[in-house]
């Protein structure tokens, strides 16, 4: 098993853990972290699978850099929204009732 495949397998595990996290966890902060774990998994797979001929492939590395920027932006937005929800309602989870208009 090459080092690239090890990275990719670790990435798959991280991705699955993250996915399980967002489905199972209600707490907003931990859910946002789960998204980051999931994203890191996808990045590892992207970089790991592309290492075929021994040397690193620069294109997926550039993609991962772009992906990290996107992940930072969405994490910041999610955190801002979660803080706002906490300040307005005192809750740190999404409840089933707030989908209905009052």
């Amino acid at each position: 098993m090459s080092s690239g495949l090890v990275f990719a397998a670790a990435g798959a595990v991280l991705f699955a853990m993250g996915l399980a996290g967002i489905v199972l966890i209600g707490h907003l902060l931990r859910r946002i972290l789960a998204f980051n774990v999931m994203g890191s998994g996808a990045f590892l797979i992207l970089v790991g699978l592309a290492q075929r001929a021994g040397g690193a492939d620069p294109v997926p590395q550039a993609m991962v850099l772009t992906g990290i920027v996107v992940a930072v932006a969405s994490t910041a937005l999610a955190l801002a929204l979660a803080r706002r929800l906490h300040r307005l309602t005192g809750r740190t989870t999404l409840s089933a009732t707030d989908s209905d208009p009052e």
């Binding site: 990435g11 991705f15 993250g18 996915l19 967002i22 907003l28 859910r31 998204f35 999931m38 994203g39 998994g41 996808a42 990045f43 797979i45 992207l46 699978l49 997926p60 992906g67 969405s74 937005l77 999610a78 929204l81 979660a82 706002r84 929800l85 307005l88 309602t89 999404l94 409840s95 707030d98 989908s99």
Partner: peptide, 24 residues
């Protein structure tokens, strides 16, 4: 804000699944 968070989670999960597909 709650609707936006719900939407954001759905959108993020969707685009991460898509990204994993791109990686493969």
């Amino acid at each position: 804000v709650a609707a936006a968070l719900r939407y954001l989670f759905a959108a993020l999960a969707g685009s991460l699944l898509y990204l994993l597909g791109v990686a493969l």
